[in-house]
Nucleic acid binder design. Structure first.
Lengths: 236, 236
DNA sequence: TAGTGGTCTAGACCACGAT
DNA sequence: TCGTGGTCTAGACCACTAC
């Protein structure tokens, strides 16, 4: 494990235990560097991590102050970075998938744009209902270039696409961009998510990139708003 | 301006102009460092910035690949970091505010938790309708500790609270945490946002911190979902 | 003015992806 | 194995906040 991770974990533990109280100011970076017997830049890296996670605020000229963990985080929150997919998040035994649609298509103008491909490149069009502990949880509407994900099958769709991509195809995700919106429930939502007419739906539209810079997924996920929200933290 | 910002701006301009094409791999950091006549760490800082903004993906062992700007960003998007408040984002001449409620209260349990204050600390409770170019845009339901924001008045509320906090009280924001949810329109939404019954509302619940680590705002903002969405980018 | 975190350097070494 | 980005060092200097 990296030095700055060790330092970050140590400080984080002291924040959670109350040793560093919410609202208090941490020792300055030079002192921390001496205490942990590491360089100042290693301390900075550690504090940067804690700042990104919303545990501390750093201000030049002032110091580093403890603010977290956030009171806005709930158990409904989608994980900050959920590259793993639902199966890895919740555990395979809790997740089931019902395949609603599994087709091959030429990409629409929208899909072409988001996946950065040509007219002729075929894509999978997949609609799945994901169930968590047997209850309807997400409807995923996914497009993937066939060239990048060969051999996709019904049985893969019924378990985990991400596991197939990682373990079988040995492809690695590098980034994800999301657009979050509120929507009114449509026919599909009412039918599969078990929500009433007009209820609110949280929609997450996303593009997933591989390490080599190619978009491998363009998808739209819809949740019952009562079952999911989205947390994030930003510094100035 | 800092060196890494100059470098980042230069590379960003070359990405936008197409000099570095989407999908292409940038020269390695050592080469870039020589080209720009700066140290490798300065190049790393510059690329970190571009990576956070979703323009490039960096992968150790592979390289830095151009992916941005994102095709998911729309003109509906709330800015990634909107510390400025709506007035500064859109321009004072485009924004108007109608004060629906302006009260003093003792904090509820929820407000106490999020603002990290005691039972006895009075808070402002403010509900405002913000109009953009004359059209209803956001309903903001805001709580602020009176002790941190003395002298709040009706006339301040009708222009910009943030401007008052920055320019008059000389307080500085350092961080913000948000929770994004989908909601069904309620009575207030229908009355003030001009939306129909049952339409979808994008709700952003947020806490804003000052540099000294004190929460200065706990608020809930509600938008017509057709007028606003939320974009974000993450790397592994 | 004192003290904080940020930037920047040159250079050694490490972890990881591709082949 | 090669080449990439990441980590880490010691130390100089800068920019900012608060008093």
């Amino acid at each position: 494990m990296k030095k700055y991770e060790l330092v970050a974990n140590d400080i984080k533990a002291k924040i959670i235990s109350g040793y560093y109280a919410k609202g208090s100011i941490l020792p300055d970076q030079k002192t921390l560097a001496e205490d942990f017997a590491v360089s100042k830049i290693t301390i900075k890296n550690a504090l940067d991590n804690l700042a990104n996670a919303g545990f501390v605020l750093k201000t030049s000229g002032f110091g580093t102050v403890v603010i977290g963990p956030s009171t806005l985080i709930t158990d409904k929150d989608a994980p900050a970075s959920n590259f793993e997919g639902l199966t890895d998040q919740a555990g395979a035994e809790r997740v089931a998938s019902k395949v609603i649609k599994f087709d091959l298509e030429f990409p629409s103008a929208e899909v072409k744009t988001h996946l950065n491909i040509n007219d002729e490149e075929p894509v999978y069009h997949i609609i799945r209902l994901r169930l968590l502990d047997g209850d309807p949880f997400i409807i995923e509407n996914t497009y993937m270039p066939v060239a990048l994900v060969p051999g996709l099958s019904q049985s893969v769709l019924e378990s985990s696409i991400y596991t197939y991509i990682h373990d079988t195809l040995h492809l690695k995700f590098a980034g994800i961009s999301r657009n979050i919106q509120a929507r009114q429930a449509d026919e599909l939502d009412m039918r599969y998510l078990n929500v009433s007419k007009n209820s609110a739906i949280l929609e997450i539209e996303q593009i997933v990139w591989l390490v080599n810079g190619k978009p491998i997924e363009y998808s739209t996920s819809r949740n019952d708003s009562n079952k999911r929200s989205y947390y994030l933290f930003e510094t100035m």
